[in-house]
Structure formats: C-alpha cells, structure tokens
C-alpha cells in the first residue's frame, strides 16, 4: 500500500517538490498538508470531488494562488514573495485552463507569439516560426490568422495548449481542459495531450476523464477536502483503491 504522505518520484530527480503545503481562504482551510513530488517527464492526474481543492493546488504551483505555509520548489527555485522567482518559474510552467482564456482581441498567431516576444524577448520571426510549428503539432495550421471567437471550442483549447507550449515550458498544468467542451471535441484535445505526454513533457492534469487517466497517467492523486487521500498507479487506483472516500467517488463516476 503506497504511502500517502511522502512520495518519491518514479524516475529521475523531482522537478516539483511540495512539502506540507497549507492554504486558507479566510477561515476556510482549502489545502491541508499537501506533500507530493513530481518527477521529470512524469504525468500526474489529479482527481477528486468538486470543491476538494484540486484547482487551488495546481494554481499554487505557478503561484496564481499563494500558499501560506509549507514549501513549493519548482525546478530548484522556491516559491516565495520574491517577484523574480515567480517570474522565473512562470517562464518554465505552461498552464491550460478550463475556459481556454484565449485573448479575444488578438489573432491565433498573436496569442501564441505574445509571450515569447514579450517575456523571452525572441525576435518576431523566431516566435512566428515556432507558433506555426506548434499549430501544426496541435493540428490546426490553417487557423493562424483567425480570431479566437471564430474557432470551435476544441480548436480554441488546442490553441491554448500551443500558446502555453510556445514558451518551451518544462512543466504543463492542465485544469479540467475538456470540461467546457462538447463531447465530440473532447477527443481532439485529449489526443493532443496524449501526444504531449508521450513526448516526455512533465504534466499535472486535473480532469474527470477517467479513460485518459487510466491510459496516460503515471500516477493518480485523489483529493478530498483539501487532502491527498490516496494515490497510486492507474492500475492500483482503479482496481484496488483502499480508502472508503476513494471507493465512494469511483463508484459514483464509473
């Protein structure tokens, strides 16, 4: 039976280290003693009931949310109040949101080239070449000149993935990337994510897609009420989970 409090990476040096991370919204204790390490190239899927703190957890990793106690170390840099650390870490982490959050006033190409040119200081040609390559990779090379409003949901989410990848991040965070999509578009996004996982990207994915978790995840974390209740390989998780809350959750969604 795996140890739920301390986990070591399955291969190589951990790129994300969380030690006893705690967070409160006012009086409300959202994250309680979260300790978890993520190894390079590992794909970690986070599941759990609504309101259990999954989003809050992964948003703490690129400091869209601040944790109030404990340590988060990403790629050797500890997250604190130092603005330079935050900037350095955000450059290494890409994030994909449930609501896509593309910039509606910029074309697809501009959405993708914005950060490389402004943050990494790349020349425009380099950024555009990279953007075209990424659009090819996510399967929509012909949409570069369009505005996000002119694309379907699945296409928008693939642009969002390309946008995050354009910064050449070491880690990708996904917060329910398919939850806002119509069923027929979910597959096209999951396919892109699978391809990404196979290419060796370190990924932290909050999702309700159990098929994806079973097929791609190296490890599944189960969150409940701000705690990691249980974790393990997909096989362990779907076949021999021990905790009654995990069992209850799985019985409800499967």
């Amino acid at each position: 039976m795996p140890d739920t409090n301390q986990v070591t990476a399955s291969n190589g040096e951990p790129i994300i280290i969380c030690r006893d991370v705690n967070k409160w919204f006012g009086e409300f204790h959202v994250l309680r003693d979260i300790s978890v390490d993520v190894a390079q190239q590992e794909v970690v899927v986070v599941i759990g009931p609504s309101g259990s703190g999954k989003s809050t957890f992964i948003r703490c990793i690129n400091r869209l949310e601040e944790h109030q106690a404990g340590q988060i170390i990403v790629d050797g840099i500890e997250l604190g109040n130092d603005v330079r650390n935050i900037a350095a870490i955000r450059r290494e982490i890409g994030m994909v949101f449930q609501q896509f959050n593309l910039f509606p006033h910029k074309t697809v190409l501009e959405n993708i080239t914005l950060a490389p040119t402004k943050v990494r200081g790349w020349p425009r040609e380099k950024a555009e070449a990279k953007a075209k390559e990424l659009l090819e990779r996510v399967g929509i090379p012909e949409q570069a000149a369009k505005y996000p409003g002119q694309l379907s949901g699945g296409q928008q989410q693939r642009v969002a993935i390309a946008r995050a990848l354009a910064m050449e991040p070491k880690i990708m965070l996904f917060d329910e990337p398919t939850s806002a999509l119509d069923p027929e578009m979910i597959k096209e996004v999951l396919d892109v994510m699978k391809e990404l996982a196979r290419s060796g990207m370190t990924m932290l994915v909050v999702t309700h897609e159990m098929g994806f978790a079973r097929e791609v995840a190296d490890r599944i974390l189960f969150f409940d009420q701000g705690r990691i209740v249980e974790q393990g390989t997909p096989t362990y998780f779907f076949e021999s989970a021990q905790h009654p809350r995990t069992k209850l959750f799985l019985s409800q969604i499967l």
Partner: peptide, 30 residues
C-alpha cells in the same frame, strides 16, 4: 473582462504592466 484573461497572461509570465497594456486595457477600451 473575465479574471481568466489576467490569469492566463500572468501564467504566461507577463508582468503587471504588460498584462495591463497588452491584455486588459485594449479589451476594456473596445
């Protein structure tokens, strides 16, 4: 403007001034 816009821009590493000038202000003005 939905808060997701600013979050996405910050997650990409843009600083506060860049977020305002590139993302929030142009959309607000439109």
């Amino acid at each position: 403007i939905p808060p997701g816009q600013e979050e996405a821009a910050r997650a990409l590493g843009l600083n506060g001034l860049q977020v305002t000038l590139q993302i929030t202000l142009p959309q607000a003005l439109r």
